[in-house]
Each structure stands twice: as structure tokens, then as C-alpha cells.
């Protein structure tokens, strides 16, 4: 480029793109929107249309006659309410547990540790993401079982392992999803200028006050962002619950049993609307916190 360039030297198309933001936005948005807006949303829509269809039990083919039967079953049979409540409860507890564990770690990383330690800690916390989800779940199964590591550690305190069941499941899921909570909070806190903390201290605020009045408000949207991960990952899980959940089942199992074993896609689709509705409500609630931009 030289200083003597004039507008006439610009390639005309580039100039057009520069002058017309609308065209630029349109061209840039078309491929991702075709992919997500048409293909992905289309797939979801097709799934939910299927929920209104029936199934031929002998041949297993979907019969395209409209019926509300699947939703009627879903609403009138108690067990689906129980399973939904249990799943939401577990998702909420896992989320809270992860937030409580992740916050101090993220704060330490972002505002106390030296840059070198900071880097090492990020690596240390990302590494477990690479060990297979299944292998980690089975490792927890070994730890939670009778005579496993958990009861070894707990027995001197007069405690015992929670065994396989809801408690064990919550611990395992919280473990599996922890990195997804730590990273957004860490990123959020890193943006918080240290000068702000210093100002707070200079103005006489004690650590506790600084935490409450300065750090938490900044961390909150980040925590919410992390919670989208932990909440949705828990809502859709059906594998960990089979490994450490004892005789219990979650929404994911109900969907999986119907689509995988019974090949009843219409009913599975109807059950799948529950986690979708829950997640959409959740997203709508958290959108106001600005959390979605922290994902």
C-alpha cells in the first residue's frame, strides 16, 4: 500500500462490501444461518413434529397420523413428573456444587496466583477434559463402591461412602463438569481490573466486603454462563446415572430407552420436549444477566 492510493484503486467488490454493511452482514451470516437456522432448527422442528405421530408396534415404523397421545401419557402418568423433578433437582444441585467449588479456584487463579502459576493452573484444570468421560465415571464407580477409596478416606471420621445413588451421582457429575464452570468464571474475573480491587481496599473495605461488593457482581454473569453448561450437560445425561446412579433414572434414560431400545421415536421426541422447555426457560431467565456473552 502506498500513500498515493486512491479510492479508485480499491477492488470494486471490496469497496462495495465496505460501503454496504447490510450486504456484508448478509454474506457473512448466510452460511452459519443456513447451517444452524435451517439445518439444525429444521432437525429440531422435525423431531417435535414426530412427537405428534404414532408408531406401528410390529414393524416399528412411524405412522404419520396426528395424535396427542404421547403428550397425554407424558402429562397423566406420574412417573414422568417424578423423573422430571428429580432430573431438574440433580441438575440444580450439581450446578450449585460446581459454582461453590469453582469460585475460589477461579478467583485464586485470576487474582492471587503469579502469571506463571496461573498458566500452570489452567493447564492443570483443562487436562481432565481429555481423559475420557466414561473412564472418569467408572473411576468414580470404583471409588464410591463398598470398600472403595471413598470409604477408606471417610472411615476414620466415622463416615461411609454414599454408595451408588443420587448422592454419588451428584458428586460424579459435579466432578465431570467442573472445568466447564471454572473456565468461564476465571475468564470473567480476569477481566476485573486489579485497580478496582485496590481502590476498594484503599477505601477501607475489608476483604469480605470487596468480595461481596466488587468481585461477586463481576463473577455472577460468568457463574451463570458456567451454569448453562453444567445444567444442560446434566439434563441430557443418561450414561453416568447408569454407572453410579444406583437404580435411579433421569430424563435422558427415558428418552434413550424409548428411542434406543423400543425404537419409539415419537414418544422419545415427546419426552425430549421436557429438557428443551426447561433449558429454554433457563436461557430466558439468565439472558438478562448478560451471561450468554460469557459462554
Amino acid at each position: 500500500m502506498t500513500a498515493t492510493s486512491t479510492a479508485a484503486d480499491r477492488p470494486p467488490r471490496a469497496g462495495l462490501l465496505h460501503r454496504s454493511p447490510r450486504l456484508r452482514v448478509g454474506l457473512l451470516l448466510t452460511p452459519p444461518m443456513l447451517w444452524l437456522g435451517v439445518a439444525y432448527l429444521g432437525a429440531l422442528a422435525a423431531l417435535f413434529i414426530t412427537a405428534f405421530w404414532g408408531q406401528n408396534s410390529f414393524t416399528g415404523t412411524v405412522e404419520r397420523t396426528w395424535t396427542l397421545g404421547n403428550f397425554r401419557d407424558l402429562l397423566t402418568i406420574d412417573v414422568y413428573r417424578t423423573v422430571t423433578a428429580r432430573t431438574i433437582g440433580i441438575a440444580a444441585l450439581v450446578t450449585v456444587l460446581d459454582a461453590v467449588i469453582a469460585f475460589p479456584v477461579a478467583l485464586f487463579m485470576a487474582k492471587v496466583a503469579s502469571p506463571r502459576t496461573q498458566r500452570a493452573l489452567v493447564v492443570a484444570l483443562l487436562m481432565p477434559l481429555w481423559a475420557s468421560y466414561l473412564v472418569k465415571a467408572y473411576a468414580w464407580r470404583g471409588m464410591l463402591g463398598t470398600g472403595g477409596l471413598v470409604s477408606w478416606v471417610a472411615s476414620p471420621f466415622g463416615l461411609d461412602t454414599p454408595g451408588f445413588g443420587i448422592t454419588g451421582l451428584i458428586i460424579t457429575l459435579a466432578y465431570l463438569w467442573l472445568p466447564y464452570m471454572v473456565l468461564p468464571i476465571y475468564a470473567g474475573l480476569e477481566r476485573l481490573p486489579t485497580s478496582l480491587l485496590e481502590a476498594s481496599a484503599d477505601l477501607g473495605a475489608r476483604s469480605g466486603t470487596t468480595l461481596r461488593r466488587v468481585v461477586l457482581p463481576v463473577a455472577f454473569p460468568a457463574i451463570v454462563a458456567g451454569s448453562v453448561f453444567t445444567f444442560s450437560l446434566t439434563m441430557g445425561d443418561y450414561i453416568a446415572v447408569r454407572i453410579v446412579g444406583g437404580p435411579n433414572q433421569m430424563l435422558g434414560n427415558v428418552v434413550f430407552d424409548n428411542v434406543g431400545a423400543a425404537n419409539n421415536l415419537p414418544f422419545a421426541a415427546a419426552v425430549a420436549t421436557i429438557p428443551v422447555v426447561v433449558m429454554l426457560v433457563y436461557l430466558a431467565l439468565v439472558r438478562r444477566t448478560g451471561a450468554l456473552e460469557n459462554l
Binding site: V83, Q249, N264
Partner: peptide
């Protein structure tokens, strides 16, 4: 009863 009904029954059994 067909397998679909058995699947729903199984869900209810597990609770």
C-alpha cells in the same frame, strides 16, 4: 401388550 408398553411400564417400575 407390545414392547412399547413394556418400555413405558419399565420406566414406571424404575420410578
Amino acid at each position: 401388550t407390545d414392547y412399547g408398553q413394556w418400555t413405558q411400564a419399565w420406566t414406571e417400575i424404575k420410578g
